[in-house]
């Protein structure tokens, strides 16, 4: 059954609809499954119960992520790389009105 899960195409809307109101999954879990990277992680977590015993109490390191943020945390180094890349710039050009959609002919 697990391998069956892995073969599913990620990011499908119907898949999201199915899980959206499934209260047994937290929003984070829903997203993880929707994006298709689920099973490997779960297996690993099941194995090492000894480590869980020594884990820090939840809440201390998670305190920051429990706060509501309007602006998500961006990694600006990655963003800089992404948006200085010519291909990505060309891809987003479609979303700007000044771009010439039939462009190639003029060049």
């Amino acid at each position: 059954a697990k391998s069956f899960h892995g073969h599913r195409k990620p990011y499908r809307t119907t898949e999201l609809v199915r899980m959206f109101y499934n209260e047994s999954l937290s929003p984070a879990e829903v997203l993880k499954r929707w994006k298709g990277d689920t099973d490997e992680v779960q297996e690993e977590e099941g194995g090492d119960e000894d480590d869980d015993f020594f884990k820090k109490a939840p809440g201390e390191d998670k305190a920051a992520e429990l706060e509501d943020r309007a602006i998500p945390v961006y990694n600006y180094d990655e963003l800089e790389q992404k948006w200085t890349d010519e291909d990505n710039i060309e891809a987003i050009r479609r979303r700007f009105a000044s771009s010439n959609l039939l462009g190639e002919k003029e060049n």
Partner: peptide, 24 residues
């Protein structure tokens, strides 16, 4: 300079996310 660039990149990221509304 880096604050200005970061903001511009953040804007591109938001535009690239698509849709009629931003996450904010």
């Amino acid at each position: 300079e880096s604050v200005g660039r970061q903001c511009a990149f953040q804007l591109l990221e938001t535009v690239a996310a698509g849709g009629c509304v931003s996450k904010i």
